[in-house]
Write a protein that binds this DNA or RNA. Structure first.
Lengths: 204, 204, 204, 204
DNA sequence: ACATACGGGACAGCCCGTTACT
DNA sequence: AGTAACGGGCTGTCCCGTATGT
């Protein structure tokens, strides 16, 4: 009768969802959204196609969930929290950039900015993706701008005081762009140039 | 019975090659390298699959040709020539950025930096692509750096005089990153912030 | 965290069963048995998959229930009752056909004979379906034949008197076939031709 | 290197197309359009997915080709040619119906009218299918009507003389419907009743 | 009785590249 | 140089049924 080996059922919706999101976030980062196949995700996450389909009806749903629940929080953890904890916004920004450089120099491959990767791939193709990505860019920028405004209110942050939002946007642009170049050159040269630039313009 | 309508033979190798490259450059820009199917290119270019594969054995060959023969020259035309013709490097950079902003505001969709688009998509996946893209980034940066060096030799370009290469890298990063954000937000806000920043730091 | 919004429990077994049958009957009619997905039925009926499978273990059970509890009674209501109430069997048949024509002309789409739709789709594939459908065809035919026999016993129904069963089968075939054509042509031309034919052969 | 066994290439477009159409016509007849899987067709026809896709980009294209190039010609061969060759239209119709009955009694399974099968399955779902099927019904009816008109012009066909088109439609409806019932009952009872009816009304 | 989570397997469509032929 | 036919494989989506839980 060809008795089939059935998988043991483990009713763990939260865990299943988390495993899929983790694998998807890593895969999208590594090979892009289009380059990642859901079948591979299914295999890597150790779930079945049916289970994945239950939590994420389409790949797009999964992609949006990755942006909102993985990429966004990761950006916030790297930037917002560090900048908030630093003695000043300027110092916080420099700390994060130095941290990114150290991290990349430590690792083998430079995989770029997770947000930027998806931004360029998906913004034009789909408006829901575009909006989700724009929302994360805005959150990133606003976290910086808010701290810079607080500093300005206390007399600090002389350079960015007159336009904290604009300067936050410059920082985000600079880092995003430098990460693109770093990915293409597989080196942190561009990031280091940007770090020196920021140190110079933000010098007290 | 079963007589097939054969297409008229064109026998125009140069034209075929050019048409394919044009269509591919536009399509890669619009939907990415992976998102563009060679069948679509074949359709849009009005050639047959056989003809395309005669000129470009694989899609990768086509991609590399697009980078070398379309993206590279376009960057050079936009940046190198404008900067060379301007009264100073600083002024040239500002002119290009202003030009890009005007162009994007005039068009409907913001499709980002052609180099950045491909950089993030292909750098990790394939080392030949990575090298080709890094080469174009270097060409872009070097064109700026060379002019900045010339200015410095003549006493101009006070801000970038001590590190023209580093500042060129900053400009490239800034513009690349701002174009990513512009693509996600479908607006030129980030570019304008970067323009103001450049105007400020490069002010004589 | 991860608290799922549970649906309010309805606990209305009869209502659930009825809603599912109604939706299924309509959907099978519209897109066929194979074309209707149980997930769509679940959605349209506002029940969950678990509830549906509680009442109908498999899709086949649901299909058989639709035939027995929806299609059959509908045919009986349209034909048996009308023919029984008419002054004669011949007149009853004409009334029903005229009624069908009027109804279809009033509606936008012509969706054919519910029995015929399922008959052609399922008779070959599954013998249980085949038997259920044959049973409904027989009930339809027998309802007509019985009335024709009664008329013959009273000296009416001259045309069909010698073979009421055979003539009943002709009427059923004629109407079934005309409804197929009506569905393909989205018009009642074939039905009207059949009506004229019946009027002529059954003329007293 | 896991050297794969490649299939021998046989450039035979007409043959490939014919094989696919043959297999598809048989399969659609047996299990319906929706019930037939293209993968099965690929296997049964001994072609590859790529080859099938080349000749029929989508299943719908294949379905329309089956209707136009297999079902239509088959109906024409069975009806139009027989009726044309018979001494009279009435006699021709009877011959075909008798032939169909004999054929079905000889075979094991009754698979119904190929046109009717597709008509009920696809007419509502897709307008292109609907139009193609309606076209074949019209061709069938017109072939009968034309012959009946010719007979009428020569004083024959007394019964159908005043409305050959209408009577042709009746014949088509009758046979289509009887074949539906025959499929459900897996017997030729309904067809025989219809044959008797036609013999009676068309008796000279 | 009913709700969510999940299993395993198909589905149609399309991909890129190559081969036979002109 | 260019055309049409074709190969083999993979894509995302969806299917129906069942198991677990309340």
């Amino acid at each position: 009768m060809a008795r089939v080996r059935h998988r043991i059922r483990t009713n763990d919706p939260a865990g299943t969802r988390r495993r899929v999101l983790d694998v998807a976030a890593r895969s999208f980062q590594a090979v892009g959204y289009g380059g990642a196949s859901v079948q591979d995700l299914v295999r890597e996450a150790g779930v079945t196609g049916g289970a994945l389909h239950h939590h994420f009806p389409t790949k797009k749903h999964l992609g949006l969930a990755v942006i909102a629940e993985r990429v966004g929080p990761e950006v916030a953890a790297t930037w917002a929290e560090t900048v908030r904890a630093a003695p000043s916004g300027a110092e916080g920004i420099l700390r994060v950039v130095r941290g990114v450089i150290d991290e990349l120099d430590g690792k083998g491959a430079v995989s770029g900015c997770p947000l930027g990767n998806l931004a360029l791939e998906l913004s034009l193709a789909d408006d829901d993706f575009r909006a989700a990505i724009a929302h994360e860019y805005a959150a990133w920028r606003d976290a910086l701008a808010q701290r810079l405004r607080e500093d300005a209110a206390q007399g600090q942050a002389a350079f960015a005081a007159d336009d904290p939002d604009g300067f936050a946007e410059v920082v985000v642009s600079l880092v995003s762009g430098a990460l693109s170049i770093a990915k293409a050159e597989q080196g942190t040269g561009a990031l280091k140039s940007c770090l020196r630039h920021l140190e110079r313009v933000m010098a007290p």
